[in-house]
Amino acid sequence: MPGIDECLDEVMALPGARGAAVVEWISGLALGAVGASPNDDHEVTAAETAEIARLASEYAAFAHDPASPAAPFSPYADFADDAPLPPGADGDTVRIGTPVEDIIVTTRTGHHLLHFVDTPFDSGVFLHLWLDRADGNLALARLRLRDLAERLALR
């Protein structure tokens, strides 16, 4: 299982990767960062992307608890690893407790891909990849980030 540094090195091997970070989205702290940053400051970028992650996770339109359609997801809720899947879901479906799978923000020159990582502790972490629009492959990046997130060792 790769740690944060190894994970970020693998992310930067993707075609078009300009910068990457592992961010704790409730506090906005970067647990690790590599490459360039859109505003030349990895800590500010981490805080800004964490704000986007929090917003998406807290709005019921994007992330509600399927077991209780009226109740929005709370990023502070404690969900067990063996939580039941919603009705009609299969093993490939994101389990209850994961607010959003990916957030993609496209700019004129690049893509920002935020992929949420399930963690064994009471916190939320995501991988942030800044991808060059001309050289990057967004579909490949999504697949690789999902694979890395499953193998990432955050213990």
Results as ranks from 00 to 15, higher is better:
122 D>L: 12
58 E>C: 14
82 D>F: 08
102 D>P: 05
75 P>V: 13
98 T>R: 04
126 F>S: 05
107 T>N: 00
79 F>M: 02
99 P>Y: 00
74 S>Y: 00
124 G>Y: 01
88 G>P: 12
67 A>M: 10
91 G>T: 13
101 E>F: 06
80 A>Q: 11
118 D>N: 07
63 A>W: 00
106 T>L: 04
101 E>Q: 15
97 G>V: 04
58 E>K: 08
63 A>N: 06
58 E>N: 11
89 A>F: 10
114 L>K: 06
72 P>F: 06
93 T>H: 14
98 T>V: 11
62 F>G: 05
77 A>L: 05
111 H>Y: 15
69 P>I: 02
99 P>W: 00
90 D>Q: 11
69 P>H: 01
122 D>V: 08
101 E>M: 09
91 G>E: 15
104 I>D: 08
121 F>K: 09
103 I>E: 05
74 S>K: 00
72 P>I: 10
108 R>N: 09
89 A>Q: 07
115 H>Q: 14
118 D>M: 07
102 D>S: 04
79 F>S: 00
83 A>Q: 13
88 G>V: 15
86 P>E: 02
59 Y>H: 13
100 V>K: 01
105 V>H: 08
96 I>W: 00
98 T>L: 13
87 P>A: 13
112 H>R: 05
108 R>E: 13
116 F>E: 07
82 D>R: 11
115 H>A: 12
63 A>T: 03
67 A>Q: 12
86 P>M: 06
125 V>H: 04
93 T>L: 03
89 A>H: 09
109 T>L: 11
62 F>K: 00
86 P>F: 04
65 D>R: 07
66 P>C: 08
65 D>W: 02
92 D>C: 11
95 R>L: 10
93 T>N: 07
99 P>N: 02
106 T>V: 14
121 F>R: 14
67 A>H: 14
95 R>K: 14
87 P>I: 10
120 P>D: 14
77 A>S: 11
103 I>P: 11
61 A>C: 07
117 V>M: 01
119 T>M: 03
118 D>P: 13
76 Y>L: 11
60 A>C: 03
83 A>V: 15
90 D>C: 14
75 P>M: 09
73 F>I: 08
105 V>R: 07
104 I>H: 05
111 H>M: 07
91 G>A: 15
101 E>H: 13
105 V>L: 15
108 R>T: 14
123 S>N: 05
111 H>A: 04
71 A>V: 14
107 T>V: 05
95 R>A: 15
64 H>A: 09
102 D>K: 03
102 D>Y: 01
84 P>I: 14
68 S>C: 08
76 Y>R: 10
97 G>C: 03
120 P>E: 12
86 P>H: 04
95 R>Q: 14
60 A>M: 04
73 F>V: 11
70 A>L: 09
107 T>M: 00
82 D>N: 15
63 A>K: 02
108 R>G: 12
100 V>P: 02
83 A>W: 05
118 D>E: 12
124 G>V: 02
94 V>H: 08
100 V>D: 01
62 F>R: 01
116 F>I: 03
